[in-house]
Every structure is written in C-alpha cells, then in structure tokens.
Design a protein around this nucleic acid. Structure first.
Length: 224
DNA sequence: GCGACAG
DNA sequence: ATCTTGTCGC
C-alpha cells in the first residue's frame, strides 16, 4: 500500500523548484569566515495544521546568553518534499528574521547546508537570501554515507557523497546519536564543525538549535 | 527497477 | 514536522 513514504507531488512543480534551486546554488560561497563570532542565531519552525510558526533566537558567543527571540506565524504554501524543505520553511523564517532588532554574525539552521542532493539545503538557501554566514545542524542524514563516530564526546566522522566531504557526523554527547553539521553559505566545513561543538553544553543539540526548538514549542502553545 | 528521503 | 504511553537512565 504505502510503498512510498511521501505524498505524491506534481512533477512539473518539482522541475521548476529544481531549476530555481540550481540557480541559487551558483551563489553559494564556501570559505573561512571573515567575521569574529560574537552573536549567533538559531532558528526553527513548528507547524499547526496549515500554519507555520518560525523562531529566531539570538545568543551571545561564547557565553551563549539569550539576547533576543522573535517569531512569525504564517501560512504554509507547499508540502514537505525531501530536498525542497527550504521552499516550505524559508519564507516564514525570513519574515521572523526581519523582526530581529540586531543581526547575528552567523545563523545555525535546523536542517542541512551543502549536505544535500544539489548542495542546497535550507541553511544554504537562507544564507544566499540574507547574504549571511549560515550552517546546517541536522538530527538525521539526508544524503551520503558515513561511519558511526566513536562513542566519546567530540568524536567526528566524515559524511561522503559523490566523492565529496559534505558534512561531519558529530558525537556532541557521549553515547548519544550524532548530529550532522555542514556549511550553508560564507562558511567552511571545518568551522561549522567547530561551532557545533563550541556551542554544545548539557544537551545533544548545540544551544542555538536547541533553544530555537524549545521556543518554537513555547510560542506555539501561546498561539493556540 | 528498487530503495531512500532534512523538517 | 506531527500523532502518542510508558519507561529506562543519569
């Protein structure tokens, strides 16, 4: 019966989204960061039926004190299709971003950066739209293969796809499933990996993502 | 052709 | 992502 995990999607729509994504990809720049990290942002979205609630949390670095948190509640335009997450979530995330009174040096996005079929995960989309350094921090792998990193905290192993090193599987907490970090835009893999570890405290998820996750649930309860 | 598939 | 109960471990 359900031999396919995802809802059927109009192939013409997918074709057009793929074309747009490939155009945006040409703008992606991977490089050593040219900033000093003082303010880092985490963002995440949660859903309520046909609506989406996106959150941005700003943290100081390296103290990781909360500086500001904003959210935006909007309508979902498209269904979720693996590889096209950005077209579903980015519009609302960008609206939330506008509400920040100060801007971060780097944005950690829930999901992947270049560790994507066309090297264009949601973190890269946001980076290109905002022309800001971004990185992806995902709980599950999307594409590529990797060996499970050692059980000790800080252990890292490469995620390879078509012979390219596109992300790192990182054991942020001992004996806990690894997370996946990759650069989105204006960043490099090595730095994205370092930042994921440098912003991890008492939980598996680095603080920017964890707190964005948390507040997405808190604000969601308020909207209801 | 078959399986896999971020959030 | 969301729907959902109990349960194991620090």
């Amino acid at each position: 019966m359900a031999y396919y995990n995802h809802p059927p999607v109009d192939s013409e729509l997918i074709k057009s989204l793929t074309a747009r994504q490939n155009e945006l990809q040409k703008q992606v720049v991977l490089q050593k960061p040219d900033f000093t990290l003082k303010v880092i942002a985490g963002c995440d979205s949660s859903f309520i039926g046909e609506n989406i609630l996106s959150v941005f949390v700003l943290l100081s670095y390296p103290d990781l004190e909360i500086l500001e948190k904003v959210w935006h509640y909007g309508t979902i335009e498209l269904p979720y299709v693996p590889g096209f997450l950005a077209f579903r979530e980015a519009p609302n995330l960008l609206e939330a971003y506008k509400k920040l009174t100060q801007k971060p040096d780097l944005i950690m996005v829930d999901g992947h950066g270049i560790s994507h079929p066309r090297r264009m995960g949601i973190a890269s989309h946001l980076g290109v739209h905002l022309q800001k350094p971004t990185m992806g921090l995902a709980k599950e792998i999307l594409v590529g293969k990797f060996e499970m990193p050692g059980p000790e905290q800080g252990s890292i192993s490469p995620v390879l796809h078509r012979n390219e090193h596109i992300a790192n599987a990182i054991r942020t907490k001992e004996k806990v499933k690894p997370v996946f970090a990759s650069p989105g835009h204006l960043l490099d893999l090595e730095t994205a990996t370092k930042i994921a570890l440098a912003t991890t405290r008492k939980h598996k998820l680095p603080e920017p993502t964890r707190l964005a996750d948390h507040y997405a649930e808190v604000f969601k309860a308020q909207v209801r």
